[in-house]
Computed example of a mutant assay.
Amino acid sequence: MINVTKTFLPPQSEYQAILKRAWDTGWMTNRGVLVKELETKISAYLDTPHIIAMTNGTLPLQIAIKALMLHGEIITTPFSYVATTSSIVWEGCTPVFVDIDPEYLTIDETKIEAAITPNTTAILATHVFGNPCNVEAIAKIAKRYNLKVIYDAAHCFGVTYKGESIFNYGDVSTCSFHATKLFHTGEGGAIFCKEKLLLEKLFYHHNFGHQGKEEFQGIGLNAKMSELQAAMGLSVLPYMDQIIKARQEIVNTYNQWFEPVVAIKPLLIRPETQWNYCYYPVVFELESQLLKVTAELNKKSIYSRRYFYPSLETLPYVKTVTLPHSSSISKRVLCLPLFHDLEKDSIQNIVNTIKKNI
């Protein structure tokens, strides 16, 4: 069986050796030494100024909205995982969808200004499959209209744009460390922020609002990462360069074997991006081709994923709007298997199956 993703697991002995440090102290949560060490090492690896590790990748989005005191309307993308939209609604704001660029699959920055109203307070955009949004254009729009910018960068661990970590753009960036992601802590996530005062707000929001042991400076919830999660992250992090290199070779193999196929289109990466090879999405000409290919792959116990599907403007708790590109592409996009030790024979089997059925 070949799944669309496969969790990278370091040698169990390495994980246990790191975990033993927490075991010896009996300190399993509440920001133990492993969580703090993981934050320091991730910040150094990515060259980012501030990071707060959290227990999953959705709470950082909710906390960012809360800390920035957003209300009213937030302009966002319909082509993302459901957490992007549900976090906006959960925090009592209204998502306003803008269609996507059909090439890069990120929010179409040329359509943002037309969606701004007096009730707009922010832009929440997704770097889709680790592919950066047009961050310069979005920054100019945000400055012109005094809007905050949050980036859902769930897929972006290790991505740089113009030589700088993608997490350094916007007011806040968030990331997922779920087991299916490039870098993982089993379950987990993080929030990145350049501004120190905002970081302090984000911090107390993620820890019940605590200011010391007995005082509270504001509302909060429990988004803290545990030492068990941090131990996994500390044991995975040293392998990141190796993982990315292996995935790059797999992506290059896919690209080479798909090059003459006109019925599908691989992801176009924005120029000046150092990508992390986190997913391998292809867009078919027709949804019927996707459905046929999926069925044939499944017969061989090869499992791809319709990601992202459906387009988020179709969710039952949002206002339905017409977004031609996102609606069409979400029906025709398929993520193919991609993980660090996917073998060439398996790739060829996948490619041949697709070629025969389109």
Rank of each mutant, 00 (worst) to 15 (best):
I18Q: 01
L19R: 12
K20A: 15
K20H: 15
K20N: 15
R21C: 13
A22M: 11
A22L: 07
W23G: 15
W23I: 14
T25A: 10
T25I: 09
G26T: 07
G26P: 03
W27V: 12
W27H: 15
M28Y: 14
T29E: 13
T29K: 13
N30M: 15
R31D: 14
R31N: 10
L34C: 05
K36C: 08
E37T: 11
L38H: 10
T40P: 03
T40L: 11
K41Y: 01
S43K: 14
S43M: 12
Y45V: 06
Y45N: 13
L46T: 09
P49K: 04
I51T: 06
I52A: 01
M54Y: 05
M54K: 06
N56C: 08
T58I: 12
T58M: 09
P60T: 14
P60S: 13
Q62A: 12
I63F: 05
I63N: 09
A64T: 04
A64V: 02
A64M: 01
I65R: 01
I65S: 01
K66N: 11
A67M: 08
A67I: 10
M69T: 11
M69N: 14
L70C: 08
L70F: 04
G72Y: 10
G72V: 07
E73N: 12
I74S: 02
I75R: 05
P78Y: 13
P78I: 10
S80D: 07
S80Q: 04
Y81Q: 15
Y81H: 13
A83F: 01
T84E: 08
T84H: 14
T84W: 04
T85H: 04
T85I: 13
S87L: 03
S87V: 03
S87Q: 03
S87W: 01
I88D: 03
I88H: 03
I88L: 05
E91C: 06
E91Y: 00
G92R: 09
G92N: 09
C93M: 05
C93V: 05
C93A: 14
T94F: 00
P95E: 09
P95C: 09
V96D: 04
F97H: 07
F97E: 06
V98L: 11
D99M: 13
D99R: 11
D101V: 00
P102K: 06
E103T: 13
Y104C: 00
Y104A: 02
L105Y: 12
L105N: 02
T106L: 03
I107F: 07
D108S: 07
E109D: 15
E109H: 14
T110L: 09
T110I: 10
K111G: 13
I112N: 05
A114M: 15
A114C: 13
A115W: 06
P118I: 10
P118M: 10
N119W: 08
T120C: 07
T121V: 02
T121C: 04
I123F: 01
L124R: 13
L124H: 08
T126C: 11
H127M: 04
F129V: 00
F129N: 01
N131K: 04
N131C: 06
P132C: 10
C133M: 03
N134T: 09
